[in-house]
Amino acid sequence: MSSPSPSSTLSDSGFEDELLCSPVRCASDSQVCDYEDSETCFIIQRLNQQQFLALNCLSRQPQITAEARSKLVSWLIAVRRQLSLSFESCCLAVNIMDRFLITTSVAADCFQLLGVTSLLIATKQVEVYSPRITQLLSLCCNSFSREQLCNLECLILLRLNFRLAAPTLAFFLDYFTSRFTGHQTGEFISAQNAHLHKEPSSAENKWRWLACKVCELSLADYTFNKYMPSVIAQCALKLAKDLLKTQSVQNSEDNTGASKMLCCEEEAPLTCENQLLFQQCMEDLKLLVSLNQEAVQDTR
């Protein structure tokens, strides 16, 4: 029996209005299948993100400030690199931490423990392997005990009612970049699918890296606590594209690759309300990047 065409399947799902335009590069059947799978994930995650938004999570905290949160999240980003964890774990950890802060007031001397415990929970949810507790405790200079961490882990899980399937910034970032470039890449490309993937151009790699950098900055900045992850991801990608355009003018050697990559199709038209939100988020990101020039200038 033949598989149904993607359009008829999507019509049955009732999500037709939500769908974005089909990417131009999806030509072969196998890519269409990959695309359909990815699209369904996107629809589910976008619909889900509202209920996981940790709006104004510091409003009831007597001892935790936006600056303290920024320091802790920046540290968690460094930790995830050191432990070779995925960006998704990092994003989920921050979400778990923020949502816990809504339910519970936390003393300043416990805040770091909350950070590593949230990271532990996130890795148990999404990683193949989790870091050892002793490893996490040593990163805190052994200021806390295993018992304290384990007790806090249970407390967090119960306070959040085990609701851990938060749509993350990492998901939307990966989704949008995969869609724009028309193929999937990752740390591992299985031999089985090798012939379906082509190597991403250096321009695409720069774009991804820069967008991820911008997202990391937004993760640590409390200003972006009010934006949906999908909004931040799209704005970060657009900003990264604009920044690379500026760079490509200065470096004529990269013109060919950069301009080819940067001719990605634009987003679907936005509603009036969304447009305002996007503009506001975009302005905030521009300001954030201008204040952190050295971070986005680093070469990998």
């Binding site: 009831r60 339910t103 519970t104 003393a107 423990l113 806390f144 018992e147 407390l155 119960l158 306070r159």
Partner: peptide, 18 residues
Amino acid sequence: VVPNSLGLHSLQPSPVAP
């Protein structure tokens, strides 16, 4: 839920009702 045996006294967060 938080056991008394916690060494760190501060790790007894109070619930905030939203």
